[in-house]
């Protein structure tokens, strides 16, 4: 059986994740416990859902660093409504989703209509969206304060599925990953996004409305940040202005670790999914192995470097292989099937 490069790439990431889990599992007792595994999936779901959304933008050749602001804004909006007694939970959820999508839409407008670069737009809009949250924040005598969300039905979103250990956010994360994977690999929209990331000019020439693609990418990123924000507030049962801090850079890093390379055209939702899992397992394990924050920091950095190294090394190898395959094909004029059988 011949594996496609894409499949091999995924197997490498899966291998890394499993290797790391085994390493941590063998060196600590509490790693392979039901409680810990569900916790990993819950923690990964927040950054993972954001990474799924951001992957649309990154595959399309852009970058979205505004996740911190969007999560903060959505979280504060939900908390604001969540303290009102008897407010229907579905409305809170819908408001949160709309707020996230709106932020993404604004990002998209700035990029497609004002022609600003993605990097600076989203870096600055992160501040702006966090600023929206400041408008909404709870205050006591004019000073920023914190309040607990009391809406039971809304808080249930942050908890377990009844009678199991599994968190709702983890399930939604997995489902979303499947949906996004299908969108990215099977639909025209997904294929166009990949094309946009690999070569915007020729995508344009072939009659694809790339501005629309970019816009939708940002809206989806915003929407997914909204989903993550909702779950985070429901879990914490309070929202703070620090909610989602550092999520912007982290989501992009998660994508990159999973093979959704900056610059576009590579990777898919599965990569973003595995990347999030990788990062969270890494931190979770490091807390257990070494309690010293300095060592945790150092290893976090080094292991991400290793993951990126594998990714780059693999991409290069594949490029070389494709190139040499093409050369050989030219030389020998062998039919396609023969080359496949060789490699």
């Amino acid at each position: 059986m011949v594996l496609k490069p894409k499949t091999i790439r995924k197997l490498i990431t899966i291998g890394l994740v499993i290797a790391m889990a085994l390493l941590f599992g063998m060196s600590t007792e509490s790693f392979f416990t039901v409680r810990n595994i569900t916790m990993i999936f819950r923690d990964a779901s927040y950054v993972g859902i954001i990474a799924l959304g951001v992957s649309f933008v990154v595959i399309g050749g852009g970058i979205d660093l505004s996740a911190n602001g969007i999560v903060c804004f959505v979280g504060m909006a939900c908390a604001r409504l969540g303290v009102l007694a008897g407010f229907p939970a579905p409305v809170i959820v819908i408001v949160g989703l709309l707020a996230g999508a709106l932020c993404g839409y604004l990002n998209g407008l700035a990029v497609t209509r004002l022609h600003l670069s993605e990097f600076i737009t989203t870096l600055a809009s992160g501040y702006i969206f966090a600023g929206f949250a400041v408008f909404l924040v709870f205050r006591e005598n004019g000073n920023v304060a914190s309040a607990a969300v009391t809406n039971k039905a809304f808080l249930a979103l942050g908890g377990h599925i009844p009678h199991t250990y599994i968190y709702i956010s983890s399930v939604v994360w997995v489902l979303l990953a499947i949906v996004v994977y299908i969108i990215q690999t099977k639909t025209k929209f997904g294929l166009h996004t990949v094309a946009l990331g690999s070569n915007p000019k020729s995508t344009m020439m072939s009659g694809v409305d790339i501005d629309f693609l970019k816009l939708i990418g940002f809206v989806l990123a915003g929407l997914f940040c909204g989903i993550a924000g909702i779950f985070q507030v429901a879990y914490q049962s309070a929202s703070t202005l620090t909610l989602g801090d550092s999520m912007g850079f982290q989501a992009v890093a998660v994508c990159a670790v999973g093979g959704v390379v900056l610059g576009g055209g590579k990777g898919d939702a599965m990569g973003a999914f595995l990347g999030a899992l990788f990062m969270v397992i890494l931190l979770n394990g490091l807390y257990k192995i070494s309690p010293s924050p300095s060592i945790q920091f150092i290893f976090q950095g080094l292991i991400i470097l290793v993951a990126i190294f594998f990714d780059t090394w693999f991409n290069r190898m594949m490029e070389k292989k494709l190139f040499s395959d093409a050369v050989r094909k030219r030389k020998n004029q062998t039919p396609l099937g023969a080359v496949k059988a060789e490699g």
Binding site: A89, A156, L157, G158, G159, P162, Y235, S237
Partner: peptide, 10 residues
């Protein structure tokens, strides 16, 4: 999912 019952809080 938001409408589902609220017993299983965090």
């Amino acid at each position: 999912s938001a409408c589902s019952d609220g017993d299983a809080g965090a």
